Amino acid sequence: CHSECLGNCSQPDDPTKCVACRNFYLDGRCVETCPPPYYHFQDWRCVNFSFCQDLHHKCKNSRRQGCHQYVIHNNKCIPECPSGYTMNSSNLLCTPCLGPCPKVCHLLEGEKTIDSVTSAQELRGCTVINGSLIINIRGGNNLAAELEANLGLIEEISGYLKIRRSYALVSLSFFRKLRLIRGETLEIGNYSFYALDNQNLRQLWDWSKHNLTITQGKLFFHYNPKLCLSEIHKMEEVSGTKGRQERNDIALKTNGDQASCENELLKFSYIRTSFDKILLRWEPYWPPDFRDLLGFMLFYKEAPYQNVTEFDGQDACGSNSWTVVDIDPPLRSNDPKSQNHPGWLMRGLKPWTQYAIFVKTLVTFSDERRTYGAKSDIIYVQTDATNPSVPLDPISVSNSSSQIILKWKPPSDPNGNITHYLVFWERQAEDSELFELDYCLKGLKLPSRTWSPPFESEDSQKHNQSEYEDSAGECCSCPKTDSQILKELEESSFRKTFEDYLHNVVFVPRKT
């Protein structure tokens, strides 16, 4: 048989008469490798580009789960590009990614509803959504962080984005990388972005840091009482949809009607710091009717980097990364020049730590249904340095008659930039024990000054392991946590139920 035959053949030295091919099969003959313009397919066939392209389009058009959109890589027609490569849609070739590779997620039936953290986790790592997304989240724990972890990498949506009755959302900033909504599939009414009845939605994105392009379709905003109209108009300008909307697409009466839409800028007039305090004062603000001013709200939190936005980490279910302080308005003076500047002394802060701070007014709604208010920009203030805590785990070892090696770990709280350490030492008198000992005694162990690591005695271990207080009263049991108490109650309830079950099964009433 021919060298490319495997198993047997019907005619000697003829690659077209093989029972099976050793390498690849091409047009009725066995070959060692697939010549151009053919590609290896499933490690035994040679196919042309049209064959591989037909497989790709067949799966793409069917949208069946589990099928493969075949691509070409290293002269092979394979189910998908290997790690580190992405497909070129024009020629199906796998090309190296520039940075992290995109991950295209194809949605069944063309859309997916995100109504819980669990459903959001199914899209973790996706960068391109081939379909439409509907966000409908009523509640949950730590929602802002969970949504950002699972949806934060999405850069492109081919269909539309719909935010509907998501009472738990305060902001859409968890879509931190969303840059493009194509609108290839539109919501009824030709809408590519749809926001309806979101009672706590206050911000779409921080438009000073976020760009969003909507290729096709219109915007729809109705019944978002805490979303200011200025935020919607800003989205029109940034996304390129200005002029597409009709009169009733953006409701003037049901958007922002319960919001404090600040239209003035508060400026800080005085800032002073110490290692654990920050004193702030800002310019006074009074609405047209000074009785509408209820006070100020001061927001602050630790910020290692200057990239904080107002609604980071917030949701309507209680999660809030900001510390909020309510401040009463100052006494009002008739003389504008003698107006008191409101302020606040922030206490209990960490030394040498940068804080993000902003302040906003708290006002009631005027009778004319106009909203007044003022808010400052987010500023960054760093507390002063102070003395560091003591170095940890000092170790001293003498390696000769004239040297001592000293080692330690950095302090747990540096409280500033540590530039150097101060080492103090003092000579001590020799131990009298060394002169009084009889060095001729056998088995004498000389006193040693070398360091030995501390260890816990058996008594201390027994005390720590004991669940009861000892007789001397030195140790006591740790208080039980809520989960331990709940577990004990469940076990007790189970024992009672099981005992009742045994009584009912074992003891049967005697027939009379």
Rank of each mutant, 00 (worst) to 15 (best):
D328P: 12
N136M: 00
Y380M: 06
C317S: 04
L266N: 02
D312A: 13
E262S: 03
S166Q: 10
D292T: 03
N141G: 15
A149D: 11
R182F: 11
D115L: 03
F193M: 10
Y270R: 12
V128I: 11
E283T: 12
I271A: 15
G318Q: 02
I181Y: 01
Q339E: 04
W322R: 03
Q306T: 14
R202S: 09
G131Q: 04
L172H: 02
V390G: 02
S239A: 13
L229P: 04
E236I: 04
T371Q: 07
Q216S: 07
G313D: 10
L212Q: 07
P329E: 01
A144D: 07
S396I: 07
F299R: 10
L153K: 14
V308G: 03
L196R: 05
G240S: 10
D249H: 14
T353H: 13
P287V: 05
F193W: 04
T386W: 09
H341T: 14
L212F: 13
D326H: 02
P351V: 11
L293C: 02
A144S: 15
D249I: 15
V117G: 02
E122Q: 14
V128S: 07
L161M: 07
K301W: 02
W344G: 14
K218S: 00
D393T: 14
L196C: 07
W322H: 12
T361H: 02
S192V: 13
I154V: 09
D315L: 13
E146G: 05
S333V: 08
G373A: 02
K267H: 10
F174A: 08
Y167Q: 04
P410T: 13
S274K: 15
F193G: 02
S389A: 09
F299C: 02
K209F: 12
T383N: 00
R291I: 02
N198W: 02
V359P: 00
N334H: 11
S389I: 04
G131T: 01
N340P: 11
L169E: 13
A144Q: 09
P342V: 13
G140D: 12
N150L: 05
K103T: 04
R244F: 11
L349T: 08
Q306R: 09
L186K: 12
E237K: 13
Q203G: 00
L180M: 10
N142S: 15
N248I: 11
I404M: 13
A149S: 07
S321Q: 14
R291W: 02
K209E: 06
E148Q: 15
N334I: 13
N255H: 02
G313Q: 11
L266S: 01
W205G: 11
D115G: 05
L345G: 02
S239H: 06
T118S: 13
R347D: 06
G139T: 07
T386F: 08
L212V: 12
N141I: 10
G343Q: 11
E109S: 02
S274V: 06
L161N: 01
